[in-house]
Write a protein that binds this DNA or RNA. Structure first.
Length: 582
DNA sequence: GCCGTTTTCGGCCCGACTGTTTTCAGTCG
């Protein structure tokens, strides 16, 4: 999905494919897991795998030993992995899509292929519709209807749900459960709690003295389309919004263990349990237990659970098995940026361009959020569809905004989201930019430039002494538009050299930079701006989405420019301008 | 296939639910 670092994700995909192929061929689950773990390491690796290979340090990566390191090197050198090609030989290329059908795993898929030649979803559907699959031992009518349903769902498109949408649905379900009574505590777990940019399902955890009643209430909610599973303590439904919602009812005594367990990630939890085993402990959603005596030694809170393993509490956003367990053991977990640290929003639009509210409405709404400052950054003239401002209108807006200032406590900062033209020059001349408090620059056109040209374009813009922040650096729109092709390391190097910040755009479909890239930027010493890119007043509430990305990127308040007081922010923004002392 | 604060060999996370079984395998998270 991302263009940089390309090979990390390419390789991760290939390792995942090898894991699935090995699994289908009934290989040892441990061998399968080794490949899957290596894939996960590659996915979360911020640095380019090529750079690691060049240093000869592949073997130092989590879960990558001599053998897998050799396969990575083989791929980097030849763009092929002989073993993968060998594994593929036994099965048609469409076979692995069968594993995307919920409820159909490697064993059954292989069985259906061997017995009936089910080599694709289409073929499986035909076999299920005709009833031929009933001839396979272990498959009866119930499985047939379940498969038909799952295939229909698969065909409907299993696009992941945006974090913002899922947060809203989870809140609604939580409120509905609480309103029905019998529920003491409600918490969201899973990838939603970890603030992943998209989620596949929603996990909700409740405590109750009447589990049966809560389960009954849950499956009967009006927003429930279909009940997928229902037991004494857990149930799983398909929500009207299309995604799956899982509910677990747990004992208060085990709430921390359950929350830790259901927050995941799976890979994080596997590591935690392995660590526990080495301490003679066993971890489950019911608590931490002494293996010898069977006594529960922790479980009421997450702090207790991590504490029993000799670890500090790990923030959910870090729980991806991306180095957080090692950092926790070494006492080197980062202090993450939190909402309280954010002093203002650095990217917002008004009806002067494509925003939907007036300047005064925006300022009042930002002030109501107790911000110290709000940056008004309407589009520039080349963004014609967004009614971008020309020089005259920008100057008029600056005057209006300055005249408004005495009526507000919040500091109103004049800005622009200035288009970066195809050649890297800016949409406003320097003598106009210098009248602004802060300058944002962004790409809104010519998305298909070749990588080198796109990189040079952005690097040139960053060299302009008036530009402060590169907005939505990759241009992606989740589920709609791929990021444009750009060498982000080149962009980050330029940003650092010129003292510029890169944005973590918090609008629901952007989240741009993403977590992996933001982590890379921060590691390279580039500060970030966490901004909402508000077009509707309600968008100001999207800040937590951007904070989620930043926290997943291990970013602390010291690396965030809008954690600075207004005076410091302005000093930083004007530092590189001609005539301003550094 | 990886890995080491009991180990360079012998382990490798844990439990719920389902469907098809007569005691459990497969799948999921």
């Amino acid at each position: 999905m991302y263009h940089e670092p390309v090979k990390n994700l390419e390789l991760a995909r290939l390792f995942n494919e090898m894991a699935r192929l090995l699994e289908v061929q009934n290989e040892s689950v441990f061998r399968v897991r080794a490949y899957a773990r290596a894939a996960q390491t590659l996915e979360t690796l911020a640095e380019s795998v090529e750079a690691v290979a060049a240093r000869g340090e592949l073997g130092k990566l989590q879960g990558i030993g001599r053998d897998l390191a050799a396969k990575i090197e083989e791929y980097l050198a030849t763009r092929r992995i002989a073993q993968l090609e060998e594994l593929r030989r036994g099965l048609p290329p469409t076979f692995l899509t069968l594993l995307e059908i919920r409820g159909l795993g490697p064993k059954t898929a292989k069985l259906l292929y061997d017995r009936l030649g089910a080599d694709s979803v289409e073929r499986l559907l035909a076999l299920a519709e005709s009833g031929e699959i009933l001839r396979v031992p272990g498959i009866a009518e119930k499985t047939r209807t379940n498969l038909l349903k799952a295939i229909a769902l698969w065909k409907a498109g299993r696009a992941r749900t945006l974090l913002a949408t899922a947060r809203e649905i989870a809140a609604q379900v939580g409120r509905a459960l609480a309103a029905e009574g019998g529920v003491d505590r409600v918490e969201v777990a899973g990838s939603l709690r970890r603030m992943r940019e998209t989620v596949k399902d929603i996990d909700i955890l409740v405590t109750s003295t009447e589990p049966a009643r809560v389960i009954k209430t849950f499956v009967a909610l009006p927003s429930v389309l279909e009940v997928a599973a229902q037991g004494d303590t857990k149930a799983s439904v398909r929500h009207a919004a299309g995604l799956r919602v899982d509910l677990r009812v747990v004992e208060p005594e085990a709430f921390g263990a359950a929350l830790q367990y259901f927050t995941g990630s799976k890979d994080h939890n596997v590591r935690i349990r392995e660590l526990a085993r080495r301490h003679g402990l066993s971890v489950s959603e019911y608590g931490v237990f002494d293996e010898k005596t069977g006594a529960r030694v922790a479980g009421k809170t997450e702090e207790e659970v991590y504490g029993a393993l000799g670890l500090p509490w790990i923030p959910p956003e870090l729980r991806e098995n991306a180095g957080e367990i090692e950092a926790a053991r070494a006492g080197r977990l980062p202090t993450l940026v939190a909402g309280a640290a954010i002093r203002g929003d650095l990217h917002a639009h008004t009806d002067w361009s494509d925003g939907h509210h007036t300047l005064e409405e925006l300022v009042a709404a930002a002030q109501a959020r107790d911000y110290e400052y709000i940056v008004v950054s309407d589009h520039s003239k080349s963004a014609t569809v967004a009614h971008g401002l020309d020089v005259d209108r920008l100057e008029a807006q600056i005057a209006t905004l300055r005249a408004l200032q005495p009526r507000y406590r919040i500091r109103i900062l004049a800005s622009t989201e200035c288009d970066i033209l195809a050649d890297g020059t800016l949409d406003f001349p320097d003598e106009v930019l210098r009248k602004l408090d802060v300058v944002l620059a962004a790409v809104h056109s010519r998305f298909t430039l070749p990588r080198d040209a796109m990189t040079a374009r952005i690097v040139r813009a960053l060299a302009n002494p008036y530009v402060n922040i590169l907005a939505h650096p990759t241009g992606r729109l989740l589920g709609e538009r791929e990021p444009y092709d750009v060498d982000l390391d080149g962009v980050f190097d330029a940003a650092r050299a010129h003292g510029k910040a890169v944005e973590i755009n918090a609008s629901a479909a952007r989240l741009d930079l993403n977590d992996v890239h933001a982590r890379r930027a921060a590691e390279l010493g580039v500060p970030v701006a966490i901004s909402t890119d508000t077009h509707w007043l309600a968008n100001l509430d999207n800040l937590p989405l951007g904070l989620g990305v930043a926290r997943r990127a291990w970013i602390g308040p010291a690396q965030v420019v809008n954690a600075l007081p207004a005076a410091d922010l302005l000093a930083w923004a004007h530092r590189g301008r001609p005539g301003v002392r550094a």
